[in-house]
Design a protein around this nucleic acid. Sequence first.
DNA 1: TATTCTAGATTGAACGCTCATTCTATGTTA
DNA 2: TAACATAGAATGAGCGTTCAATCTAGAATA
Lengths: 203, 203
Amino acid sequence: MPTSSSTTDHTRAEARRQQILCAAAQCFREHGFHGASIAQISKSAGMSAGHIYHYFDNKEAIIAAIVAQDLEGLLKLSAELRAAGDIGQALIERAAEGVADQLDPATAGLKLEIAAEAARNPRVAEIVREADLACRRSLAATLRAIRSAAGHDDDDAKIEGMVEVLATLFEGLLLRSIRNPELDRGRLVSGIQGAIRSLIEQA
Amino acid sequence: MPTSSSTTDHTRAEARRQQILCAAAQCFREHGFHGASIAQISKSAGMSAGHIYHYFDNKEAIIAAIVAQDLEGLLKLSAELRAAGDIGQALIERAAEGVADQLDPATAGLKLEIAAEAARNPRVAEIVREADLACRRSLAATLRAIRSAAGHDDDDAKIEGMVEVLATLFEGLLLRSIRNPELDRGRLVSGIQGAIRSLIEQA
DNA sequence: TATTCTAGATTGAACGCTCATTCTATGTTA
DNA sequence: TAACATAGAATGAGCGTTCAATCTAGAATA
């Protein structure tokens, strides 16, 4: 049964790859992309350092895979949002979850690391910008639906501006959780919700 | 004249220190805290690697000094704001400058690097959080003045919530400039100004 | 003024270590 | 047996850091 055996191999290899990515994500979170070593990652993944190179060409490829994996979650979330029934209500309700998510210091650290790396590594920048573009498109469609349901007729530029402000708001949370870890999360959630509401209800 | 000679020495040493910090900031911007080496920094500063250790105990001390220096600018800006005549108007006007500043990719990269480092390095985290606290206090006093001039009587928690939303908005810009470098800056400025206006005019 | 003294500025080589990566050899499985 | 999985040692480069040796320029001395 050659098909099944090849499938098994593929599955096993894929599992091993995932194991490396998981270990790498943890190491990157703890020490940063350049602070984490292959030795640390391999130890955390339970295999030899050399063996890592059976699955990834080099360290940068691991970084790129982590970045891509992290941004996939972002795309999935924005797609879910667009599929909701009452989109306007969903946007504000899901905002609460989204805010809580962004305020988790464990994930925030890695996301900031990714952004900082994107500022100097063109390979990472490309991945990040591609995901951002897809996310903005999805969010723009969502906002357009909300606005036209409320009787507004906006041009593209206006919608794009609203998307940027919304994105700014969400991404700022990543820094807040680190700069002020004792912040009142509940109050911040309702503050953000208020800001979103007045954003989408503006003239 | 022993006093003058000692002063000269002190000035020279301080200049040399600053020279190192300037070179380090550039290297950190280009390669990150852990990607930049002492050899690179010393070369960029025009001195030997060993000589750096006359001015700083180790690499982490350089990082800490860069962080402290970067955050000083933040504190200065928030102090200036509080000293303005019509504070409310000043806040919105200065926001334009502030947004443009945050959107400069050269500085944004270093600031994100600092935040990411703060997420895992307690020494850096302490510096960052101290500066954030001072900044929030200053901003809270500013907002309180604006609100009470407009006839609102807010409790501390409400003001703190507004401060957090404002901070979230500004800090989000650091990520936007990297994730979407072609964004329409003019439109984003007015979008942010609108959000600030409705934030400080809320019920 | 000419000479010596001195203390800080500065260098460049050297240290021990860790890095990312490669290579070789040995299991393992089908 | 053939192909893949895995380990672990080896490699050369680069790391942060130290240190003994020089340079420099002003102070003290004569």
